[in-house]
Design a protein around this nucleic acid. Structure first.
Lengths: 257, 257
DNA sequence: CAACAAACGAGAGCGGCGCTCTTGACATTG
DNA sequence: CAATGTCAAGAGCGCCGCTCTCGTTTGTTG
């Protein structure tokens, strides 16, 4: 919910830019407005969880809000805007839980941090399947997330994951030689070099590439589980299956634990 | 498209069950009806490809068919039924292409077959992103695929993949010891034993578990690419990235190549 | 305090959706 | 020929996103 207050409109931002004027105390109207938007997001989340993203309806949240449908357009530009708010909200909730899980593991236990990250993502995904589907499932047709608002929260997990790998490498806890050795073609090496430069990383190409594999594989396993790609009765021990997959991936990326 | 004729209604099935009566020559009416259903599926596929599953509309299909909206209900029970038809159609198209790709590789080149399968799935997914999203993305809210009609086509890829692994094992081409070794808890071993029995497999638990990991990881990598989880410019060499991931997974499952 | 402007909720309305039901035209068959 | 079955069309229901207008409320300012 924090992002609603962290999202001043352009004019509000200009107002606040004026020297220490009474920018602090919000008028009752502003407080009511902020509260209404928060309510809309809350109701939107409930509808999302119960009925799924495609069935998210402004009219329905208006009903729950006890207001006529056209009134919500005073607060939310359109349905896509509400979707964006829910997207950011979900990204941040996931990011917060992943951060908390990783930080509960000792500083130097990089393998433990990797597993904690994986388990945190899976736990959140199973608890909030509709939100997970919104973030990592099929794109909503006709909806394009505004990158300038979603990129930062949307990359928190991968940034954290890369951070673990790189910290492990710098601490000498990442296997220098990964097995099996697979050559990295020049074009891919270029992409990895750009990532290394942008994120200020130290790990070599082979480790980075395996980090990408671990990233996609963790989400692939979770997506299969959440989206019901495993049959209904194929796997009863899903927790153990995921734990095993994490263990194998941990070895693949060279995190000794 | 073959499945439309392979999908007789219950009454038609009963008719055909009568001893070799003139069940063969379809009346002109039946032919017209079959053709119309095929047209609906074709138009549905086009709409699916252009506008996505959530925007699939019977009214739009009816317009393209040059008919009033209520008329299509003579041929398709409802929107979910059309979705099911498209689902089966897509599963079979993917299955056909995977089969063809795998069979174009020499019998004993199991690693090559694994890679061919992966590349075939990826190529189809990139060519038909909406169909891929329908099969492997977020479930369509409120739609439950009828298992008795979708299970068989929906499991063709994994059955094929398991077949490759098991044939490799029986041919002695699957590494006996996988690295890194990760213990398999008893509950997971039970699931794997059930799978081994049901699919008549020979490979040991560790290999089967890694097969599952390879399965989810391949689809995870493809989903990230098709669903735009990689940033727009993060990876230019996506083909090489996927090829590299396949190579690593091939080593993980123990397919020497 | 009164006047004004901004923000607000309500309501009507547009086109589109899935789906149902009825009606009249047409073909197939006994 | 007449009975039967199939078909397209149309009207209609409730839902959706979204827009526009119209009074009312609320906070600000002269």
């Amino acid at each position: 919910m924090g992002m609603t207050s962290a999202e001043p409109t352009a004019t509000q931002a200009e107002d606040q830019a004026r020297p220490q004027a009474k920018a602090k105390p919000p008028t009752p109207r502003e407080r009511a407005r902020t509260q209404t938007i928060a309510d809309i997001i809350r109701l939107g989340r409930e509808h999302l969880a119960v009925h799924g993203a495609a069935a998210l309806s402004l009219r329905a949240v208006a009903r729950d809000l006890g207001v006529v449908s056209s009134a919500v357009y005073r607060y939310v530009e359109n349905r896509d805007e509400l979707l964006t708010l829910l997207l950011i909200d979900a990204y941040n909730e996931l990011g917060d839980e992943v951060d908390a899980a990783v930080e509960s593991v000792p500083d130097q236990d990089f393998a433990g941090q990797f597993r904690a990250l994986g388990h945190a993502v899976r736990a959140w995904a199973i608890r909030e399947p509709a939100s997970y589907a919104l973030l990592f499932g099929s794109p909503v047709p006709g909806y394009q997330a505004p990158g300038e608002r979603t990129t930062v929260p949307g990359t928190r997990v991968i940034v954290r994951l890369v951070g673990i790998f790189d910290a492990a490498f710098r601490a000498g806890a990442l296997a220098a030689e990964v097995t099996p050795a697979v050559v990295i073609p020049p074009a891919l090496a270029e992409d990895l070099a750009a990532i290394r430069a942008e994120m200020n990383l130290a790990a070599p190409d082979a480790s980075l590439a395996r980090g990408v594999l671990a990233w996609t594989s963790v989400f692939g396993a979770i997506s299969f589980e959440v989206f019901g790609q495993y049959g209904a009765d194929t796997f009863a021990a899903r927790e153990e299956l995921f734990e095993h997959q994490l263990g194998v991936l941990q070895g693949v990326v060279g995190l000794q634990g």
